[in-house]
Computed example of a mutant assay.
Amino acid sequence: MARFISFVFHPLLLATYMFTLFALVLPWAFSPLKEDGHFKFVMLIFCVTFVLPSLNIGLFKAFGSIKSMAMEDRRDRVIPFIFVTILYSAITYLFYSRTRIGIHDSLLKFLIIIDVLMLVGTLVTLFYKVSIHTLGMWGLVGILLPLNKVAEDGSLFYPTIACIALAGVVMSARLQLNAHTPREVMVGSILGLATGCLSVFFLF
């Protein structure tokens, strides 16, 4: 069960979950996209933030750059994390430069926040094996918490409560698998929550 939870809430899937939630309850997050293009964008996000990085990490494993796909050793994580950070940033830049999405549009701001979370995780991993699962989950919570003030209809309240509960479940799963120490899980949680909240406050 802990392995299943760790897979379902893999950090690379969280951008897809976030935009799926926004498509359901917070359509202005996709500004300036038209409403009929929201789920198409979600599928695009799934491909470029999960499928493409996963394939490349598989190539790193095939060529011996990392010992396993799970990347238990901190040193195994450095190259893939740097690659994914560069990939995410390049995708955001392409959206900005090749589409009509502008710097003041909500969609670009959320893409930037995802990039910042990935960058923080990568920088910390250079020196410390932090739990990226918990960083990602609490990063999502950190994004949703301040957005509750923006969504005046209360549509994000229950999703936020659910994400907090799921973040706790993910923390327990990572500890159950002995993938991380309690300190590594706690550091990931604090970094994710702080980065998510501060990014939303700064950009919105």
Rank of each mutant, 00 (worst) to 15 (best):
R3W: 09
V8E: 08
P11I: 15
L13E: 04
A15E: 06
Y17R: 03
M18G: 06
M18Q: 13
F19G: 03
T20V: 07
F22E: 15
F22K: 07
A23F: 13
L24A: 14
V25F: 04
V25L: 12
W28I: 00
P32H: 02
P32N: 02
P32C: 01
K34C: 03
F39V: 10
V42Y: 07
V42H: 06
M43T: 13
M43Y: 11
I45S: 02
T49S: 13
T49Y: 07
L52T: 14
L52W: 06
L55Q: 11
L55H: 03
I57N: 03
K61H: 13
A62Q: 14
S68K: 04
E72T: 06
D73Q: 01
D73G: 00
R75S: 11
R77S: 06
I82V: 11
V84S: 15
I86P: 12
L87T: 05
Y88P: 10
T92D: 07
R98Y: 09
R98N: 12
R100V: 09
G102L: 14
I103G: 04
H104C: 04
K109R: 15
I113E: 10
I114F: 02
D115K: 06
V116I: 12
L117D: 10
L119T: 12
T122Q: 11
L123H: 01
L123A: 11
V124N: 08
F127V: 10
F127N: 12
V130N: 04
V130R: 01
I132S: 12
L135R: 09
G139Q: 08
L145W: 03
L147D: 05
A151L: 05
A151K: 13
G154I: 04
G154E: 12
L156C: 08
L156V: 04
F157C: 01
T160I: 00
T160G: 13
A162D: 08
I164M: 14
A165T: 00
G168K: 04
V169M: 07
L177V: 02
P182V: 00
R183G: 01
R183M: 03
E184S: 09
E184R: 03
M186A: 13
V187W: 10
G188V: 01
I190D: 01
L191T: 10
G196C: 00
L198G: 14
F201G: 10
F202C: 05
